[in-house]
Design a protein around this nucleic acid. Structure first.
Lengths: 79, 79
DNA sequence: AAATATTTGTACGTATGTATG
DNA sequence: GCATACATACGTACAAATATT
């Protein structure tokens, strides 16, 4: 999966959409930890700021829950 | 009004609480523009990032609405 | 138990783009 | 064109919570 820095769609939205797709498809099943912010930075070659904005979107949608020191996990409910 | 950088309460939450209080008290009435990010940065001597986090909280609570190039305004409804 | 590594949280700074006045 | 204001995106540093060794 890849991301287009020249798209009118902001990077953080593109990344959120990719993660969203992985969640909805079951590639990232309930309870599974989402890759760490750092690894997402590396995977998509973006800043942590951008990754965190993506994750915040998913959190606002209650697709994931985040716990300090642990990680971000695919939500158990709401799907 | 002031803010305490040594508090356990994050700066962005402290600032959000001050703005929230101004809204609820009517000091910032419906439709009124909230001070710009820059002026809030100066008033509280914090970074723009911190100010934006505060405003995001209020936006999540639907207390304010933000429009690019215009400003952030106290929401008309929901109060 | 203690030190280390990992992961998220907060906070700062800068640059550039877009929308509005 | 210019000034103001918010949006996106990059970077850094350190703190706090949790894992691992």
């Amino acid at each position: 999966m890849t991301v287009d820095p020249d798209s009118v769609v902001p990077l953080f939205e593109q990344i959120a959409e990719l993660l969203r797709a992985d969640i909805k498809s079951g590639k990232l099943p309930r309870g599974r930890r989402v890759p760490s912010e750092l690894s997402l930075c590396q995977e998509f070659d973006v800043s942590r700021d951008t990754v965190r904005k993506s994750i915040r979107l998913l959190r606002d949608e209650e697709l994931v829950v985040t716990r300090a020191g642990k990680g971000t996990f695919v939500a158990e409910l709401k799907r």
